[in-house]
Amino acid sequence: MEFDNNIPIYVQVINMIKKDIIQGKLPMGAKLPSTRELAVQYHINPNTAGRIYKEMEMQNICYTKRGLGTFVTEDSEVFKAMKEDMAEDLVNSFIKEMKDLGFSKEDLLSVVSVEYDKES
């Protein structure tokens, strides 16, 4: 597993899990791996894995059933908000980079439109 040394590892893994949830690889209500399994899967420290679930619980992305494990939220509002959050983060950093390159709003939108059509 390759990690970016400048971003805390738990943040990076949370983002990966969020992506899996948004893409449906981890459907709503699905059981998440145990802390140890998560550690082994991502090759991260078990304590970091524990912290990941704690953070995600705080953000209501998942919840723990005593003795059963951790599960992905079934709340579609949370799901929607998470998706929007991630999109916002991506767009924001994209806008910032584009601004740095000197793109105006119109230029940016037209580039996006052209490239999006090429992709699909």
Binding site: R36, I44, P46
Partner: peptide, 26 residues
């Protein structure tokens, strides 16, 4: 190594290859 890690075991890994282990250690 990660499978052996648990609440009551401690692991010390000596290395000069830090980047390989950065995510593994706490």
């Amino acid at each position: 190594i990660l499978n052996a890690a648990s609440d009551d075991s401690t692991i010390v890994i000596s290395t000069h290859l830090v980047d390989e282990l950065e995510a593994v250690i706490d």
